[in-house]
Computed example of a mutant assay.
Amino acid sequence: MTSTALSIQNLTIAIGRPLVHGISLDLERGRVQGLAGESGSGKTLTSLAVLGLLPRKAQTSGSIRLGDEELLGMPRRALNRVRGNRIAMVFQDPSSSLHPQLTVGKQLTDHMRVHLGLKGKAAAARAVELLERVQVPRAAESLGRYPHQFSGGQRQRIAIACALACDPEVLLADEPTTALDVTVQAGILQLLRDLAVERELAVLLVTHDLGVMSAIADDVAVMKDGRIVERADRATLFADPQHEYTRTLLAALPGSRLASQNEGGTVGEDSVGEDTDD
């Protein structure tokens, strides 16, 4: 039985003009909720609103609840205790989300020091465990290396490890595989799927690519012009889309993408340690 980790209700966002129009979405533990739509549909704004990362001039209303806590309008200091701790985010480009002048070990252990109070050997040991879990080769050795010394696929695995450092309840993944080639992309998607199940993470997967959704999402919501126009479990939505916009998105998928859909939702693994997307 699933339970709601994060509940978005009647969320509106305006930045000069209305951009998101009263959407509602529940994220369940152990499940991947897909949020799909073209650029400008409002899907990324929705994910940024969860962490309070919208521009200062943004006006919002509605509710974003993490358990019993209301996040929308939460003071910044209180929100800082939530970010990276109870809710974490993986961005599209790991080259920009990882600091180029800090070692991987430093970036991983900083999260633990701030939120968990872990230092020294305890933090380093946990960092190694995290890198091993996301299948970064030679994990202990990797702590002393810098992001540019890894391939794109490995950098995204490191970014996921950073996001998991404090055992969050919710993981937001905003176009996490767009910058990767297809083979490496498949391994990252499988990793996110596995982590959702084994850690009972509530995952929000934001992407324009319904082919990605077909691989790992349990449920899919489709956004257009700031509104959710259709939502269903993955199998139902792909087999019998009801909204014309959803049908248009599906029709744009290459045949090979549609063929990748399968009942179990598994995708092929990338060659760990041999990413060649750089």
Rank of each mutant, 00 (worst) to 15 (best):
D26F: 10
I13Y: 05
A5H: 03
G34P: 01
R31N: 07
P18T: 11
L19D: 13
T4R: 13
S24T: 15
L27T: 08
T46I: 13
Q33L: 12
G42M: 00
G22W: 03
I23V: 12
Q33H: 14
T46M: 04
V32N: 04
R29P: 03
T4M: 10
N10E: 13
G16N: 06
G40Y: 05
I13T: 10
I15R: 15
T4L: 08
S39Q: 13
G30V: 06
L25C: 08
L25V: 13
L11S: 03
K43G: 00
L35E: 00
R31H: 14
G34N: 05
R17D: 15
I13M: 05
R29Y: 08
G34E: 02
V50H: 00
A5G: 06
E28R: 10
L11P: 12
L35P: 04
G34Q: 06
T12H: 14
G52K: 01
G34K: 08
L27P: 07
E28S: 12
L27A: 14
L45E: 02
G22V: 01
G52W: 10
K43I: 01
I23W: 01
L53D: 01
L48P: 04
A36H: 10
L51E: 04
R29H: 14
R29W: 01
S47G: 14
I8Q: 01
A14E: 09
R17Q: 15
V50R: 02
Q9D: 13
V50M: 08
S39A: 12
I23P: 15
I23T: 12
G42V: 05
I8F: 11
S41H: 00
L35F: 01
G52A: 06
L11T: 13
L27D: 12
G37R: 03
L53P: 07
S47R: 01
R31V: 05
S47H: 12
K43D: 04
S24M: 15
G30P: 07
L45T: 01
L11Q: 12
L35N: 01
S41K: 01
S41Y: 01
V20L: 08
A49S: 15
T12D: 11
K43P: 03
V32P: 04
G37Y: 14
G16K: 09
G22N: 14
T44A: 14
